[in-house]
Amino acid sequence: MKTFIILLQKEFRESWRSFKFLWMPLLFILLGITDPLTNYYMEDILNAVGNMPDGFSLSLPDFVPIDILMASTGQFQSIGLIVFVITIAGMINRERQNGTATLIYVRPISFFALFMSKWVVGSLLGILSVSLGYAGSMYYTAILYGSVDTMSFIQMVMSYCVWIVFATAVALMFSAIFKTAFATTFTIIVIPFGVMIDSLIGQYWHFSPWKLANYSVQLLSDTHNEYYIKTLLLTIILLILAIIIGILFTRKNAGTTKI
């Protein structure tokens, strides 16, 4: 427990000093406010740009708040998620490859504490970024399109955070198993590409972690989704599995640190 606290402190310090706790939330805020603003002002933007042929009239669909939050979620799920998981996928292997891990691994630490310290800090970084991103999106959505039920909104954000925490665990697991190049590749395939694949052919199954983000946004609507709880539970089970595998490989690959 004591080594966990020390390692946690170290991870926070690193993330703080490398400004991750600044730029990652900023990225998500930017992604979050893009959709409510651009969609609302699209007509004005097009008019301002001009050059519209005479008689051309653009009929933009009328959006409701949930559409905008869905669009913001789409931004998080692509650009945001890619940047986020790449950052996480280097947390363990990079230290082995540059040899900084060596002076930690020769000390009486547990690899459980080591992995968990990184998972906790990565997860908090993700949760903070996503929460602020959604807050930004909600702020402009509320001003421009109208509000949603506060409790449902909080539920949606928390539910999406479970997905981010899962993504953190998977990226860290790959970081423990492979060197950076492979870990990054596998993580991108499994997380952001996984989301894409699920949205393309996902109609054949009803619950998978990759659906959790969409199901979370659906919490805002009145329709009850019978698969939501199962998806949530499955995500949590896979998350725990990823953590266990990650810890085992952190220990197994300790000897690959540059000495």
Binding site: N98, G99, T100, T102, L103, V106, K258, I259
Partner: peptide, 8 residues
Amino acid sequence: FLPQYPNF
């Protein structure tokens, strides 16, 4: 332990 090339 002091490795040959310590990395910090």
